[in-house]
Amino acid sequence: MIIMITRARVSGCFGSSLVAGAVLVSSAIGSAVLAGAAFGLLGAALEPASRALLAGAAAAVIVVGAILRPVPWQLDRETDTAWLTYQDWRTAAYNGFALGLGFTTRIGFWLFYLVPLTAFVVADPLLAALGYAAFALSRVGMSALLAALDVWIPGGIERARFIADPLAVIALGALFAVVVPWP
């Protein structure tokens, strides 16, 4: 079922899976650029002290969350399956847009929180947009590539968390070093 949905995400677009994949990835990058720019703009709009306080508090809350539970706080859902019925460019475009934002569907890993939070800390809409676009490229670009190569990764999320969770905590510690003045 999952394979069917994933296939449908990149099919049904001018009869070409290549075009559908391009629409999917472009749409994802577009939404990621918008989200990154918004977070960067929000960070830039605040005084450095306020930004540091908010980011430090958020990082602390996320670390506590990561300690208490392996599964992050998230919207536990996939993209809207009704989009599969369009059978045209909208299936790829809407899925790409949602997946590029990241937080409107299952995120799976605490490490995801670093993306919007660091985009906020960067406090530069352009740099934040480019950084968020890297997420979309990695998330959706790799999915499209794997689908094109007919490679499917069944499960493995527990093993991936075993690597991603420690990385998230290290990254949150690093973020603390960025926002909190150290002697």
């Binding site: 490490l111 993306v115 660091t118 960067v122 950084g131 968020y132 890297a134 997420f135 990764i153 999320i157």
Partner: peptide, 21 residues
Amino acid sequence: EPWALLVTAALIVGLAQQTLP
């Protein structure tokens, strides 16, 4: 720089999310 942290986290989590159910 903070942007380096953003890009690194973004790339890694994007790859990790390939294992999402």
